[in-house]
Design a protein around this nucleic acid. Sequence first.
DNA 1: TTGTAAGCGTTATCAT
DNA 2: ATGATAACGCTTACAA
Lengths: 349, 349
Amino acid sequence: MKAPHSRHGHQAKPATIKDIARELGVSITTVSRAMRDFPDVNPQTRQAVLDMARQLDYQPNQVALSLVTSHTNSIGVIVPNLDYFFATAVRGIDELAIEAGYTVLTCQSNESYGREITNTQRLMNGRVDGLIVSLSSETSNVDHFRRLLQRSVPMVFFDRVGTDLEATKVMLDNYDGAVQAVSHLYEQGCRRIAYLAGPASLSISNQRKKGYLGTLEKYGLSVREELIVHCPFDQAHAYRATLALLDGPERPDAIFAISDRIAVGALLALRERGVAVPEEVALVGFNDEPVAALLTPALSSVGQPAFEMGRLAAQLFIEQMNSDELMPPKTELLKPRLVVRESSLKRGR
Amino acid sequence: MKAPHSRHGHQAKPATIKDIARELGVSITTVSRAMRDFPDVNPQTRQAVLDMARQLDYQPNQVALSLVTSHTNSIGVIVPNLDYFFATAVRGIDELAIEAGYTVLTCQSNESYGREITNTQRLMNGRVDGLIVSLSSETSNVDHFRRLLQRSVPMVFFDRVGTDLEATKVMLDNYDGAVQAVSHLYEQGCRRIAYLAGPASLSISNQRKKGYLGTLEKYGLSVREELIVHCPFDQAHAYRATLALLDGPERPDAIFAISDRIAVGALLALRERGVAVPEEVALVGFNDEPVAALLTPALSSVGQPAFEMGRLAAQLFIEQMNSDELMPPKTELLKPRLVVRESSLKRGR
DNA sequence: TTGTAAGCGTTATCAT
DNA sequence: ATGATAACGCTTACAA
């Protein structure tokens, strides 16, 4: 955590407008103006400046520029990790941001609250104009973001958003995603549907849980607490949780998993116990990652438009940047779409 | 590509040392010293400064600091994409860099030469202290990096490195990886081994090709040009290329794929044609991504230590930063390890 | 059309 | 123990 002490001592200094000015015997102002295509510079002067700039391999110093203008034309992105979903979302952010002239600087919090704070601070200490963020699974206190919001720093949260944060958000209709998954399982004849949830602190986990519970209720199925299992976002935990579920008193006939990775853990456990999928236990994941289609049986999964989500987040960010008045926070809800594959198809195969 | 014009006009200015100084009636120098725990400041003054800093929610302006010190304590990372391999490598870079006090700023070139250049410029203009880079598949001209190298900007290349670049590199022993894969296929009785290669411009593709050719020669197998297919790094192309291979005059009895994603494309084509894997055609991929173990049949794959590669790249970078003399470029070669699974096991199953 | 000077927030050098 | 001042590289009034 401590800053490096030694300096790298042999870096030839890059050319500055000062060098160009000295070389040409003009003032730095003239150089500055020529470089930026100001109308009132002598064409010959401009050309001379441009030539000299090329000759000296001049690159404008963005740091100095930022100090003057107090903005950087770059967006800080903080994501919990770079799995398929987030990598895709970041590509979406990238695409829009780059064409709008912004540079996207991505950091991973690595699902750590502490690292999320460090990233936030370092990014905001002058490097970026604002932040696009998806919360780490450890994060429950969002004061570090709230402070920035109070300063009107442009921010957009996506996917894993803070519920009690007055900010612009882009998220999936997680409730609906769960409804689609659980309704489908019900229609396939499943009556003891388990929910393999994520960490209880996460908004997405709870929203999906509500959708799960709502659907059970709709169909008059009783809620069995033993069938709702919270586990960390990794395959090994999901594997163990599923084994416990299978060995428990209340063996489910279907599992709705909060992510495909969790579903994979479950699938491995089901194979291990020799449980037929989907005949004995049907399985639905979430995210519709490419791996879903490659599993045997191919995994049904609730797809979410990760790329689109990133694009939209970037778009809202840029709108905030470009607006001269403070924009009221708004929440955009994207629609999930269940992709049915073999792992949940008991009928009509 | 043009810079945004409008400004975000309602951002309350963050406090500066000037504000603290004014508030306390001391000089900015004193504040600066107090903040940095200088020995010769009156403890009471220091305390007053610290208190005021907290009260004003003071955050040091990293931009101003950078302008003075001309370094930023940050590393720019440019990767072609954020697939499993690169995401893992970036985590490795992150881990080491963060504990050394650096911030890691990641950009994707999206396999585009132009975007790689833009990223390089923007990152360097933002004055990151140096770059850790893996080349885009489009990149054949590396002058943009050579210029930086000439200025002694600290740089480390990893995985996809420029062959004719005098720089520090971390790479896999790709030759050996191919040797392991092809030898294994030979030992399984395969004699018509195809190589599904990547873009011909990529060093890794060619190094693996050499390993492939070397192994054929070692076992006295003749080289059939029709069995060497270059295709872009995506599943769809691999799928089509494999179909062509299967329908061709020289149907292979094994396929060595340059990546797991390519192998997946091949596997899909093999399924499509009803070709038994591994009985009729054995298959080996590269990278040993998690998906490999989940396929049916499970995919044999040459594993590479992505995380370790990232860590090592960061370590070499930091060594460069900390050294006062110019360090001669060196190349670190990491060892691959073939993981044998069902897709290539014809015997002793 | 061009130049001078102030200022962005900080550190470093030299005084006091 | 504290302060004035220059400097980092650039932009932007304001002058000329």
